[in-house]
Amino acid sequence: MGLFQCNASILLISGNDLMTFLDGLSTNQISGPCTAPFTKENAKIIDVCDVIPVGDNIALVGSAEYKDDLVNHLSKRILGRGISITDISHLNDVFIGISPNTVPDGATVHDSTFGWMMICPKSISYRPTWTEEEWSEHRVMNSIPFHGHEITQDRHPYSCGLETLVHPQKGCYIGQEILTRMRTRGKTGKTMHRELNPVENATTVGHTHSLSIKRS
């Protein structure tokens, strides 16, 4: 058991038809809690967010580093639909890893592609139980990509181990033409690998193995 505190952003999206709005912008099908990549027209990642319904609203938990790009991407496409975005990052801490025995009152838990996620109000002052090194080791041993390492804005979802987050049947979304062509032609380019050390150009280095992005 262990939890790492992420450098995450949390955007609370409010308004009508939120699922439809977000679903049209993500490679994954958004109809409830899930992890969803948002991509540009060239299929490169803007951010990969955990989608968590909160009452009538939706919380998007993504990378703090990419928050401004995501806000810009979403806000340009609201087009008078009465949707608002509130940044609640400063009110909460986000932890990821393996579920602890007990969850503090007031925390929200979510089953993320990256692991078991817990969002705690800062007032709880929950402390992480994993260092970044321990989280990295866990990721390497379980081939889990993560923000800033494998997941960067110069990569598409297929190249950083997020192929399960590209829905094969859903309709149009930004970047679909490119991703569908890659999949149907079997040409997804570089992919994520886990190999025994030493690994050249590793994206995450573990004790015995490392993750890297390279052509097969």
């Binding site: 919380a59 609201i78 109000p121």
Partner: peptide
């Protein structure tokens, strides 16, 4: 999760 239902969170200013 603290959803900022009080005054501690304000909407992101979106450039439209």
């Amino acid at each position: 999760m603290d959803c900022g239902t009080c005054d501690s969170a304000s909407p992101v200013i979106m450039v439209q």
